[in-house]
């Protein structure tokens, strides 16, 4: 396969870098955080606030090092927040105030 093609980092099919990476096949339980983020995304989808495609676009725009460092649902909450800010459903000022609230 051509190594010089400019694939995006989330576009992983067949990438030789992972050819020898073992797969962790043990069961992993989702945390309460994971489940809440998952459900929140569904609600925002059903209410027409954001599509799953927007979620993916936001995940794909996370820089590669962060993409690999963050857990699955940590990527999601970052993408959801980015999308809500971009579309004006929340403002930076509102988010900053909410983050600083005790």
């Amino acid at each position: 396969m051509d190594q010089d093609k400019p694939r995006a980092h989330h576009d992983m099919g067949g990438v030789p870098r992972y050819a020898c990476e073992p797969v962790d096949i043990a069961p992993h339980t989702l945390s309460d955080f994971d489940k809440e983020v998952d459900a929140l995304r569904q609600v925002l989808g059903l209410k027409g606030v954001m599509t799953v495609d927007e979620l993916r676009r936001g995940i794909e725009s996370i820089p590669e090092a962060d993409y690999h460092r963050l857990s699955y649902y940590q990527r999601w909450i970052r993408s959801i927040t980015d999308t809500l800010l971009r579309k004006g459903f929340i403002t930076e000022d509102e988010l900053r105030a909410a983050l600083e609230a005790p």
């Binding site: 609600v43 962060d66 857990s71 909450i77 980015d82 809500l84 909410a98």
Partner: peptide, 30 residues
Amino acid sequence: STLVETDAETLLAALRGLLAAKGLATPAEI
């Protein structure tokens, strides 16, 4: 925004309140 780099649990807690207040996603809907 660099705010999205906030710790994920903190981000979720902040969104939970904001989105409930705006009626975009209530705890009952979630």
